[in-house]
Design a protein around this nucleic acid. Sequence first.
DNA 1: GCAGTGCTTCCATTGAATGGAAATTCCGCT
DNA 2: AGCGGAATTTCCATTCAATGGAAGCACTGC
Lengths: 249, 249
Amino acid sequence: MANSESGDSVVDRIVRVIAAFPDGVSTLQLSELAGRSGLPLTTAHRLVRQLAQHGLVDLGDGGSVRLGLRLWELVNRNSPALVLRQAALPFMEDIQQVLNQNVNLAVLDGWEVLFVERLSRRGSVANRAQIAGRMPVHISSAGVALMAFKPKGVQGEYLEQFADPSGRLSRRDMRSLLAETNLQGYAQLAGVVDPDTWGIAVPVLDRKRNALAALGVVVPLQEMRLHALVPALQTAARGIGRQLGNAAL
Amino acid sequence: MANSESGDSVVDRIVRVIAAFPDGVSTLQLSELAGRSGLPLTTAHRLVRQLAQHGLVDLGDGGSVRLGLRLWELVNRNSPALVLRQAALPFMEDIQQVLNQNVNLAVLDGWEVLFVERLSRRGSVANRAQIAGRMPVHISSAGVALMAFKPKGVQGEYLEQFADPSGRLSRRDMRSLLAETNLQGYAQLAGVVDPDTWGIAVPVLDRKRNALAALGVVVPLQEMRLHALVPALQTAARGIGRQLGNAAL
DNA sequence: GCAGTGCTTCCATTGAATGGAAATTCCGCT
DNA sequence: AGCGGAATTTCCATTCAATGGAAGCACTGC
């Protein structure tokens, strides 16, 4: 027993604390937090109290813990994701108004897509791509659109390790899917998540034609009108790209 | 020279790092970060590297540092601000479409208002209330709307310490402003920030009539139509409140 | 009133954090 | 290309902040 039995640094433990919240859950009891983060109760308690002093977490009655407003504030004021969001939101709203479909914006992180923003069609059922949610590249049209416009090297590495656990998609399939997407300029994926929906996505490119993000829609199969959708998305994506060019990334 | 010359704990220092970014700036050089956070260069370097290992910050070429995508993800997946945002966004979009004005959503944090979400009128000039931005309560209609529906005790404490640096608003004025707002059910503030705009805001109440948030619009003076605006806002606020009642706060 | 659960305080132990100094890399300038 | 200055990164002896078990306290349900 000593300074950190487990060999963690303090930084490691702070990360454990703020990463301990399961998806979409914003409140935990101290003891549950300790359990989930794998920290001794006493240590969790001490850390939480310290973090609370700075507002990185907020404490409720009876030992309830939630991520702090101040943390939210700091992150949402200075995160690079915000620059992207800021640039994209007006265009996304246009698309949403014109097409009345779920619109989303995603970036690549590792070999997964991270959804940065999403506008729901009013009244639509909760769709899978939650904000700050992740999906494997090959499951989402946004992922395919992004990967298809990444540099050759990145694509190579990706394909190298690619393996569809369901076995439905071979590496060769994936390679040709990316190639085709690059050629067409947009990705379309028939309802992988939900069998009755299609995903269409286009890349947001910087001046070097490198994909920064992907802009996509999810539409019910019967409302699928590719010829109307794709140009609208591409126009918007171009607008976002231009906007980003102006802002310092 | 020893363990922390300044008497900071590690937690303190991590906070310094992530709070060191000035408003809206997402990238800093390591040395600048060290300077701004008041940490010795070596220490800043060590911390940043550790944080980067967990993705709480991302490192660019040549020592550039930015807040990490993973941090953004964690916060935006589990922060209580998100529950609010999620509940409010559809209603905000409705308002924005119908009225075509800047719509914003704010909560109270300390004696300041924190803007949680904002939809810009398309083409409008950048307005002051940025997302994750703060304003003193008495400067913003959202602030007044919030404070007017907080419990008596909180209002008392607020008035206790209230002092308008500009001297334009006395404590007595503030008190009657709050009372009047509570009576009317909405707050209106003539262009404090920008002389040609008005702010109108209504509280989002929980079942105990305690204000959780405020929903507001900023409109150019000449487009001001109170009789149309207020009912629309109130309806939306009620909807948001109902939605929040369902979700576990 | 009692048992059980969970939060909080206390404190001796010790290795993780510290930061000056030196090595290295990067970058602008000639 | 080659040089000079400023930045980043590595190294490592010193030391106190972090650690977590144990005991105390508060709250809840039976």
